[in-house]
Design a protein around this nucleic acid. Sequence first.
DNA 1: CTAATTCTGTAACGAACAGTCAAGAAAAGG
DNA 2: CCTTTTCTTGACTGTTCGTTACAGAATTAG
Lengths: 189, 189
Amino acid sequence: MARIREFDTEAAVEAAMWAFRRTGFEGTSIQDLVEATGVGRGSLYAAFGNKEGLYLAAVDRYRDKYALPLIEELRYGLPARELIHGILLDVVDEIVADGSRHACLMVSAAVERAPHDPEVRVRIRATTASLEDAFADLIGEQGLARGRDPRDVARFLMTTIHGMRVTAAITPDRAALTAIAEVALGCLA
Amino acid sequence: MARIREFDTEAAVEAAMWAFRRTGFEGTSIQDLVEATGVGRGSLYAAFGNKEGLYLAAVDRYRDKYALPLIEELRYGLPARELIHGILLDVVDEIVADGSRHACLMVSAAVERAPHDPEVRVRIRATTASLEDAFADLIGEQGLARGRDPRDVARFLMTTIHGMRVTAAITPDRAALTAIAEVALGCLA
DNA sequence: CTAATTCTGTAACGAACAGTCAAGAAAAGG
DNA sequence: CCTTTTCTTGACTGTTCGTTACAGAATTAG
């Protein structure tokens, strides 16, 4: 019935995601996004409404790509302590492999945008809550909470992961991050 | 010999500090800073050179006002476990009392500016390292490390504090933050 | 008082900002 | 073929950005 869209929406959001992660919401201009995605200004506005719309799409994509698989992994992995250990080390790997000092988009969005944008806030909150649920279920089922509320331990783990992202923005050192993960794991039974 | 400066430099930096904490580096315009400090554009540039100069002054002030006293407290407080417990709860108090969802300037600077500005990086790194030193000394002296390297435990504590700031940006809930602090404290002997 | 110096306030700079719009190009229905 | 619909392109909007320049006010030295 009409002309088909030339650019790949997914690919554009992916590119925008990296741009926002690198320079934040305020620090990324529409021109930057045009260059990063290879999509014209007009098309960008037609597809996403405005800068915030594209940002929200990027945050959603980050959730789908990184958080949801993690939740799945937590749901079916049974040796819980080893699983959580592996997840923390994976975070370290990801940070070190990436090389750039930029925090993940979740942390960046939480710090920069969540206080100002309710849409961002509700998304970050939902993703964090889902991850906490997954951690809490696993910890509760296998009695790793040492008498504490599994939800509190789950929150603690999420805080540790967030904190490691911040620490990595300052010094992305593998040994230090690994040691931090090991100490945190000591809080589990 | 010449006209004396009319505005209070300290007060101006203090005001700029709050502005930067609220809206970040990129999100705070010179006009915002003029309004926040009550100092004219020209005077601001004469005193601090440019936007980055004022930002660095704000980061320095944050360090002097919040990090240095903490380091002093760690140096002379002997019941280490209770001291650290109190410090973590103080962080919670500060976050909750503040009410605003904004992360502290250290975390904000680490996430937003440290990857792009070497001057910011070196400052945040130095402050974090000093705090780690203070924690590590205390933990080492009093054998709270449970056989681990006291430095690793200190790094872990810093990461926990950073993480709590991020968590607070999403949900500044006293009960949740307190519980997180308690779990983290479980890593000490 | 005058001269020298340094601050303050404001106007102005070019560049970059987010967002709009109209005209052309491409696809599908008839 | 032509019409209709939608996407793309690029120029353009007015505004705001960080920074500079300059005139005038305030202070001190001589």
